[in-house]
């Protein structure tokens, strides 16, 4: 679905990431973890086309229209109602306004927000706004979801609930996902593969971890799987080494 080859991205003189290689196979859930400043978000921005890479290649199976980007912030337009926000992407894709809005209503209802279409973002709770943002992306039927710590700002209960719902949806629809997160447990709970990035600048992929926990997954049950704890311990130690800048030796 997505192949990133020798990617280098930077804002100033020195590249934030350099020589990054990763792959998201069709229907697979992949996470990127790493210390702050390791360029995780920059990789997502480059893949989405928001950032022009300095070098390297991004191969997508399909056009950029097959991408859906869920930001850390819900990024809903405050002057548009929930319905209009969800319908925006559909209208951009030339669906007539009426059809786009009725499709938006259906998506809001699917995400438990039936009857909230007329509300502006400031009239919704953090969790409801996040659901609107998810509806906005899913309504476009993406094949690959890019997610930049989308639920970090939510409280634990809402966060767990929305993560599980989205995970169910991803598994049912066989979507591919590239998730950026600081939360190692979350990464292992939802992913098939986890990539660890080194400290930036010139961050690179230090190691990849195969998460052998069967699907469909329940995010509580996954944590009790026998493979979970050893993998978490390994990832934790490797991440600590990466943060301390120690010479990294992955024990694969």
């Amino acid at each position: 679905m997505l192949r990133v080859r020798d990617l280098a991205v930077g804002y100033g003189a020195e590249p934030v990431i350099e020589g990054v290689n990763l792959e998201v196979a069709s229907g697979k859930f992949v996470s990127l973890v790493g210390p702050s400043g390791s360029g995780k978000t920059s990789i997502l921005r480059a893949v989405s086309g928001l950032l022009t890479p300095r070098s390297g290649g991004i191969e997508l199976n399909g056009s950029r229209e097959s991408l859906g980007f869920l930001f850390q912030d819900d990024a809903l337009l405050p002057w548009r109602t929930a319905r209009e926000n969800v319908a925006l992407g559909l209208r951009i894709r030339k669906l007539p306004t009426k059809a786009a809005e009725s499709e938006a209503d259906a998506w809001l209802a699917r995400l438990g927000l039936g009857g909230f279409g007329e509300r502006f973002p400031h009239e919704l709770s953090g969790g409801q706004r996040k659901r609107v943002a998810i509806a906005q992306i899913l309504a476009l039927k993406p094949k690959l979801l890019l997610m930049d710590e989308p639920f970090a700002s939510l409280d634990a209960i809402v966060r767990t609930r929305i993560t599980q719902e989205l995970l169910n949806w991803v598994e049912r629809e066989h979507l591919s996902v590239l998730l950026v997160t600081h939360d190692l447990e979350e990464a292992l709970t939802v992913s098939d593969t986890v990539y660890l990035l080194s400290q930036g600048p010139r961050a690179r992929i230090l190691a990849s971890y195969n998460v052998a926990i069967p699907r469909p997954r329940d995010i509580f049950a996954s944590r009790k799987h026998p493979n979970f704890a050893p993998l978490l311990e390994r990832l934790w130690n490797d991440m600590s080494g990466a943060m301390n800048g120690a010479e990294f030796e992955a024990q694969r």
Partner: peptide, 24 residues
């Protein structure tokens, strides 16, 4: 800039950005 990125990732060009983000 978040709104600009949002509209761009939804596929919006300059005209859509003008109508949906800059003017409001």
């Amino acid at each position: 800039q978040l709104f600009v990125d949002r509209v761009r990732t939804l596929g919006g060009g300059r005209l859509v950005l003008l109508r949906e983000v800059y003017v409001p």
